[in-house]
Write a protein that binds this DNA or RNA. Structure first.
Ligand SMILES: [Mn+2]
Ligand SMILES: [Mn+2]
Ligand SMILES: [Zn+2]
Ligand SMILES: [Zn+2]
Lengths: 152, 152
DNA sequence: TCCATATTTGTAATCATTTCAAGCTTGTAA
DNA sequence: TTACAAGCTTGAAATGATTACAAATATGGA
């Protein structure tokens, strides 16, 4: 049988990226955290356990490399940090302005189905659809302590 | 007849914002630069001519105030800076990865027409639709000097 | 006028990201 | 096997955007 790590390695090789230990671990981490949309810092902190010598610069370099090769998707919804998404199938996102979590939103959208091509003469490479508001949980727990970061 | 400045003043008062000189000038600048989607720095630099004592902090404070009151719309497409849009009617944006300019895109979208309300149980306050790619001009002028900033 | 309050300002701090140069690996050719 | 070049990784310093903070200034009544 094929291990998950072998699949990760294949993904890198398909994009012409040499599968170094650091790159494998970073991509593996993203693949195991599809719902977190982690920041650079989150990737770095978690992987320090596995790779005590890991450099934050390497995480930045690697993630930028992955972005360029379209191996991951960059979510810039907060405006202050990039969050990384292993799921490159087009989908919308929702940012809760109270607890800060980013949630996947699946909905039909005319431009969602790989329809890239040309719009108004401009060549389209990436499509981003975002919503901001208050999430289901935070709407319920009004006045109660939120379980994540606050952005207010 | 009603001057443009009087309209700007009314907009501020309607949102309960005291129309100080700085605030009037900042909102006026945004209203005259609908197609630029200016950065904080651009607003600051231009207004220094009119208000030599202007502080960058005031521009930040004022624009954050305008954002909270929904007087302007924040475009976070680049991931590294907020760009401000006087046009709060819902519309999509396009970022050229070559020259860096942000262009308005008008197109029909199921979620574009003030349909905020609830999605998947989450309360929606803001809707953002972005595209990234290479703009019409930059596609033409391959190899030629671009007329704006480069992001590559 | 005097005072309370809101606003503006300048500086310093913070936070994310990039730059850069030095050290480390790895593959390959002598 | 040794030697070297190319690619990778690392840590420190630099950059850029934004926020925190406290002092200075303006405003609008009592
Ligand atoms: Mn996602
Ligand atoms: Mn716009
Ligand atoms: Zn929430
Ligand atoms: Zn362009």
């Amino acid at each position: 049988m094929i291990t998950n790590m072998e699949k990760i390695k294949t993904l890198l090789e398909e994009k012409g990226i040499k599968p170094t230990f650091q790159r494998l671990k970073i991509l593996e981490y993203l693949s195991n955290n599809l719902n977190n949309h982690p920041t650079v810092e989150m990737v770095y902190e978690k992987l320090l356990n596995d790779i005590p010598t890991l450099s934050l610069t390497t995480v930045y370099n690697t993630l930028n490399n992955f972005l360029e090769k379209r191996l991951v998707f960059g979510v810039t919804i907060t405006g202050t940090e990039v969050r990384y998404d292993f799921n490159t199938d087009y989908h919308h996102h929702f940012l809760c302005k109270k607890c800060g979590q980013i949630i996947d939103i699946d909905l039909k959208c005319a431009y969602a189905e790989g329809e890239k091509g040309i719009i108004s003469g401009h060549r389209i490479d990436e499509i981003h659809g975002y919503f901001k508001g208050i999430c289901k949980d935070c709407s319920k727990n009004v006045g109660k302590k939120s379980r994540g970061r606050s952005s207010s």
